Simulated scan of single mutants.
Amino acid sequence: MTQRVRAVVARGRGAAVGVETILVPDPGPGEAVVRVQACGVCHTDLHYREGGIDDGFPFLLGHEAAGVVERVGDGVVDLEPGDFVILNWRAVCGTCRACRRGRPWYCFATHNAKRRMTLEDGTELSPALGIGAFAEKTLVHAGQCTKVDPRAEPAVAGLLGCGVMAGLGAAVNTGDVGRGDTVAVIGCGGVGGAAIMGARLAGAARIIAVDIDARKLETATVLGATHTVDAKTTDAVEAIRGLTDGFGADVVIDAVGRPETFKQAFEARDLAGTAVLVGVPTPDMKLELPLIDVFSRGGAVKSSWYGDCLPSRDFPLLIDLYLQGRLDLAAFVTETIPLDGVEDAFARMERGEVLRSVVIL
């Protein structure tokens, strides 16, 4: 039975989003309908609104979410109504060349629901990252639902669905931060803050937070940074070297995703150090580096896809750490807002006033 629910829709490039009625069909084979309880406002949703991802308007926004499974389609065996889940946008296929090599976090053929949600006039919607969770209910592939301990607060749990997992995983999984390492994080918004928290969780001895916003640097200290660098007034590369006996950091994470910040990450790492790009660039951005420096500095230059996470492995583990009081995920929730507050939340996010606004349904 098709259901009518309220949802946030972006109809055109740069246009303000609005709450509209959409139609959610019954789940098909391998699919599930989820009643959304909370969904974080992520910068990726703003990228969709601005046409920075693709031109598939109208978009059903929202993807950083937690909720309760309401219905499942044929063939779904490991999920049932009533399960508390975090939605993920990398439902691994299990059969592509990455999965067959035992690297499912690189899966090249991730699943999405095949049935389409629509506007009331039948216009098909493009759900953000295959999820579309600024909605009272959404339709996803069953593999996009990761069961976690239901004691977790939905507003906190949902953040693992994107930004927090991306940043934390950039440190722990992609950057392979180890005990005693020195880590620098450039850009201390939600993703960068999560990278700082991940570096602390991994046992880094020194964590250097770099930003141009003093408020974000204050928050970075709360999240685990041992040193801060105001890149508005200080050369970030020289400051990082100055805090590391002139050598540079073992791991430098660029959570901004601009050519100038990634060049800083590349130059601020120690010999044989690792530079990790987790901030999302736009298609027009270009990077120029002296090839001799790429060779002579050694080490690794990596991009981090979703924190190189495996949701079925990482989400339950991180929720357990949160419930044990060892991972303060609640620190990322700056405010909770209603469904019709997303457009205003975008403005606050652009002004750097929040780590995360979270829609509560």
Rank of each mutant, 00 (worst) to 15 (best):
V278M: 09
P281V: 02
V333E: 04
G341V: 03
D284R: 15
D254V: 05
A272D: 13
F332G: 08
I292L: 12
V280M: 05
P316K: 08
E260S: 12
R297S: 09
G257V: 00
W305Q: 06
T274P: 01
D314A: 01
Y322M: 05
L323N: 06
A265Q: 04
A275C: 10
S296M: 14
R313C: 03
F266Y: 07
L317W: 09
P283D: 09
D254F: 01
D293S: 11
V333T: 03
L271H: 09
V333G: 04
S303C: 15
P281M: 09
E267G: 07
R313H: 12
A268M: 08
T334L: 09
F266W: 14
P316M: 05
L329G: 02
V256P: 08
E350M: 12
L289K: 00
I292M: 14
G299E: 08
T336W: 00
G298D: 09
L327F: 15
Q324V: 06
P316V: 02
V301I: 15
L327T: 04
Q264W: 04
D308Y: 03
L327D: 04
G298N: 00
Q324C: 09
V276Q: 13
P281Q: 06
W305Y: 15
R348I: 01
E343S: 07
L277V: 00
A272M: 14
I292F: 15
E335Y: 07
V294A: 12
I319W: 10
D340S: 13
A330T: 11
G279V: 03
L323V: 07
G273D: 03
F266H: 13
G341N: 10
V301W: 13
A265I: 05
P259T: 10
D320V: 04
D320H: 12
L271M: 14
P311Q: 01
L291Y: 14
P290I: 01
D320I: 09
E288V: 14
G299V: 03
R269V: 11
E350L: 12
S303Y: 13
G298W: 02
V342P: 10
F315S: 04
E350Q: 15
T282V: 06
L317G: 09
E343D: 15
S312V: 14
K302F: 12
G307C: 13
G325H: 05
A265N: 00
A272F: 05
M349Y: 15
V278C: 15
L318A: 06
F262A: 09
M349A: 14
R313P: 03
V278L: 07
R269M: 01
D254A: 08
Q264F: 07
